[in-house]
Design a protein around this nucleic acid. Structure first.
Lengths: 136, 136
DNA sequence: TTTTATAGTCTACAATTGTAGACAAAAGAA
DNA sequence: TTCTTTTGTCTACAATTGTAGACTATAAAA
């Protein structure tokens, strides 16, 4: 198999791996069988697909597998958000960001740093963004 | 078939429909066969799936189909961005937003309105956001 | 050491998605 | 009015995804 996106189910696994830095299929099963109501088989399948896609790596500890992330968490998030924005009409970027910001939890320092980048961006920002949906 | 997400290929169709408000399969074919290198069959299949999923509606004009969007464009974007954020660790929301903002086009008024909502949010924002990836 | 519980690897199978050909009906052209 | 092009509807088929059972090799327990 080759590299595609991380799927909805796979994100669940990846998040745990990132949080724990490394883990085993039984630890994942403990956590995810409750939360997601998955069988251990399901988790094992997801693990092996994530390895095929090279989002996870394996270290052997005896006959046991230790899984660790092969991509940076932040990079994965950036990529996946970038993909969503790429399928949108750019005229709606602003409102979409506005709406998402209203609905997620951000710390004061997150907010400050975002305001910061926005202010920098403002200097060179256009008055208007034009729709390119019919172009090409 | 029942309602799921809009897929990558389907977004291409939806964006055109939103832009044109209503359109036909031949007009879509003109636009998308070049841009996406799709056959007219492919476009027709996507149209019929989007109708099944109730993202598009059909009006008959003689024996011709006129397709129109059955969901609001902004609502679709909000939903899909929300979904992505739901698969992320909330500790990374801030940096992810920061990164996406750096890389997309925003108008001055977009920026002002986002700064605005951020400032409002700041009053009640926590000092820190905590990871919930292992909870439940 | 025999039994049992684990962890790992394969195989399975339905639903969704990407992509498109086959065929029929109607409309326009000759 | 017959031929040709459009358009619509069905069917097709491989790849991906969600979900999990079967079988195997150990390791732990009795």
């Amino acid at each position: 198999m080759e590299k595609t996106d991380i799927t909805k189910s796979e994100w669940e696994v990846m998040r745990i791996v990132w949080t724990l830095r490394e883990t085993t299929s039984s630890q994942l099963t403990d956590i995810l069988s409750k939360k997601m109501d998955w069988s251990s088989s399901t988790i094992k399948t997801l693990l092996s697909r994530l390895c095929d896609k090279e989002f996870l790596g394996i270290k052997k500890d005896g006959r046991k597998n230790i899984y660790y992330s092969a991509i940076k968490e932040q990079a994965a998030y950036d990529m996946s958000v970038k993909r969503v924005f790429e399928s949108m009409c750019c005229m709606h970027y602003g409102e979409t960001l506005h709406d998402v910001i209203e609905n997620i939890e951000l710390s004061k320092s997150d907010i400050d740093s975002i305001i910061d980048v926005l202010k920098k961006k403002r200097d060179t920002a256009p008055e208007e963004v034009h729709c390119k949906c019919l172009e090409e």
